[in-house]
């Protein structure tokens, strides 16, 4: 098995700005006060891992642990501050709800726009339009401006586009959660088929059960650092234990018991 995504020593630093001068007046004001007004924040710190062809990798971690930032670095939205990311093959990101959609355009128009933004051609998108519409199953809403969509509808369309264009790598960031039961099932069936045809999936979710059931491997990010890279079972246990020990007041142990498989 060869690596299709290779992340090496990636660090992503953000400048957290308290009072960034947005206007010339503020710039002068800042200059005379001689303050810096920011501090640097490393959302992802020296992370390295590989994803192999045909693998479905789960990514877990609490809010702000750098999961989404890492996915955006892999998707090429951010250029890492240091380190390298090598991606082999075409990649479709499902990173944020509504990314690459324009509210004023209809669902049908957004299929084309979304595909073009991902680097696919007009012809490719036109050929797939019908099957995308069929999978998204939005009824008459397909010809309504997407600003009128519910978050579930957004997700349906985004998922349909991202999977129909048949990318080599699919990156999914916690968006399936807004789909209803039936559609989620439809999504996982499609992901399963996807993986069986040798495609690679990177999958972020807080529904640990989905990782346990679907992923081959998982990684765990804590405050931007990769702390575990192992089987889903082990990573989930570790994540659960850390969370419980960090929040003893929340009685999470009972919750963890609920999500554990009845075996």
């Amino acid at each position: 098995m060869s690596a299709v995504v290779k992340v090496e020593n990636v660090t992503q630093r953000f400048r957290l700005v308290q009072e960034r001068p947005d206007t010339v007046r503020e710039l002068f004001a800042k200059f005379f006060r001689n303050s810096t007004g920011y501090h640097d924040f490393e959302a992802v710190r020296n992370v390295s891992f590989e994803v192999h062809e045909g693998e479905m990798l789960g990514i877990v971690g609490s809010n702000g642990s750098g999961k989404s930032t890492l996915l955006k670095v892999i998707a090429g939205v951010y250029k890492p501050t240091s380190g390298t990311v090598a991606v082999r093959g075409s990649l479709a990101p499902l990173i944020e709800l509504g990314a690459g959609f324009h509210g004023e355009l209809t669902g049908r128009e957004n299929i084309l726009m979304n595909g073009l933004l991902m680097g696919f051609s007009k012809r490719q998108m036109m050929d797939r339009e019908e099957s995308i519409i069929e999978f998204a199953d939005l009824g008459d809403f397909i010809d309504a401006p997407v600003k009128q969509y519910s978050s579930g509808m957004y997700m349906r369309l985004a998922f349909a586009v991202a999977t129909e264009v048949n990318p080599d790598i699919l990156v999914i960031d916690e968006i399936l959660a807004v789909g209803d039961m039936a559609f989620q099932q439809k999504c996982f069936e499609r992901l399963e088929r996807f993986r069986n045809s040798g495609k690679t999936i990177l999958f972020v979710t807080h529904t640990l059960e989905q990782i346990r059931r679907n992923c081959d491997r998982a990684i765990y990010l804590d405050k931007g650092v990769l702390v575990a890279d192992s089987t889903p079972e082990q990573v989930i246990d570790m994540y659960t234990e850390t969370t419980i020990s960090e929040h003893p007041e929340l009685k999470l142990s009972s919750l963890a018991g609920l999500s554990a498989p009845a075996r």
Partner: peptide, 9 residues
């Protein structure tokens, strides 16, 4: 900004 922050293009 929406596109720039979310899509590589």
């Amino acid at each position: 900004s929406d596109l720039i922050k979310k899509v590589r293009v």
